[in-house]
């Protein structure tokens, strides 16, 4: 479909959101509680906090939950009965107020989950999710979306992208059929869009390194992987707040006669990542796992999946308990300008 622009006046925003909630879909939006900014299930517009730079966790869990039941089983000595998950029970969902970095992350996840087979859990969740993005008014020192070919007003991944323009009204760019379906539900709230230079209303974030330079300089041997990662504590925080990290582990919960198989998030930072049954681990030392993290995102994924595994949201750096700042490291590797 051809994208179309509309104007949503600020006084119409609460009705817009609440109409969507009443429409029966689950609506997740950023909230602020005890200084913690997180996406939560919303019932009223007043719960929403839009004036944020970044949430701690990403919107990844909506399409790739931290725990996903794959099937249930019942077994006796002779038979095993497998009960599949009914994918129809996955709810229709709207993510409201996600920044462009988060919206763009679904493309990266999609590349992984459709690579060698189509992951029906991810795809069903993604198909049932509508993203209403929000351009960024502000950024902080951790943000670097412009260095990974995105920008604070990117429409990539948003079904509708809202940008706050004059008088706190919103320019609504309706990008996809899912976006149009939402628009049609609340058409009366929209007005024709004014001629407006969107870029004047989004934050100006300078590009801090060049992706091609970075990719050219990445090498398995010869970089200071150890020096960059010595302070790493080997926890999974960076991967679990990351919108694009997609590694998972499979676990059985239950016993020999009854239970379920689930997949849960996994991360290359943990020492038992890729630990073989034999006891050998090809990535025994943290510097080898840190190299895996960077090479995966900036070399292997672009090579194999034609996407970079990073949207520049900066969450990993903000959440790291020992201030491993990925931007600092990427600039260092690429020989960037800072």
């Amino acid at each position: 479909m051809t994208p179309q622009n509309k104007l949503l006046k600020k006084e119409c925003l609460p009705t817009f959101v609440e109409t969507l909630v009443k429409g029966g879909k689950l609506l997740y939006a950023p909230t602020k509680e005890n200084e913690r900014i997180e996406f939560k299930l919303i019932e009223n517009f007043s719960e929403i906090y839009l004036d944020y730079i970044q949430t701690t966790k990403s919107i990844k869990s909506i399409v790739f939950p931290p725990i996903e039941k794959l099937f249930e089983y019942v077994a006796d000595k002779e038979h095993v009965e497998i009960k599949d998950v009914n994918l129809n029970t996955i709810p229709e969902t709207i993510v409201f107020g996600a920044h462009p970095c988060d919206a763009a992350s679904f493309k990266v996840l999609n590349a992984v989950f459709t690579w060698d087979c189509n992951d029906e859990f991810f795809l069903t969740r993604k198909d049932k999710t509508t993203v209403i993005g929000l351009s960024c008014k502000n950024h902080d020192d951790y943000c670097f979306c412009t260095s990974v070919d995105l920008n604070p007003g990117s429409t990539e991944g948003s079904d509708i992208l809202l940008t706050r323009i004059e008088n706190d009204n919103y320019l609504a760019e309706i990008m996809t059929e899912k976006g149009e379906a939402v628009y049609k539900l609340v058409k009366n709230l929209f007005e024709p869009a004014p001629q407006v230079d969107k870029n004047a209303f989004v934050t100006q974030l300078p590009k801090l390194f060049d992706l091609n330079d970075l990719r050219g300089k990445l090498s398995f041997e010869g970089l200071s992987w150890m020096q960059q990662s010595l302070r790493c504590l080997s926890c999974g925080t960076c991967a679990y707040v990351c919108p694009t990290c997609s590694c998972f582990d499979i676990q059985d919960i239950g016993n020999q006669t009854k239970g379920k198989r689930v997949r849960i998030w996994d991360t290359c930072a943990l020492p038992q990542f890729t630990l073989h049954t034999s006891g050998h681990n090809p990535r025994h030392f943290q510097n080898e796992r840190w190299r895996q993290r960077i090479m995966h995102k900036f070399s292997y994924e672009p090579e194999r999946l034609h996407v970079y595994g990073c949207v520049g949201c900066g969450r990993c750096s903000r959440a790291c308990p020992v201030n491993i700042n990925i931007l600092e490291n990427l600039i260092e590797i690429s020989g960037g300008n800072k």
């Binding site: 966790k57 931290p66 504590l233 080997s234 926890c235 999974g236 925080t237 991967a239 679990y240 707040v241 849960i264 998030w265 991360t267 943990l270 308990p321």
Partner: peptide
């Protein structure tokens, strides 16, 4: 809790 085990690692 997201089971990142930062508590354990620190």
């Amino acid at each position: 809790c997201i089971r990142c085990y930062a508590c354990r690692a620190a």
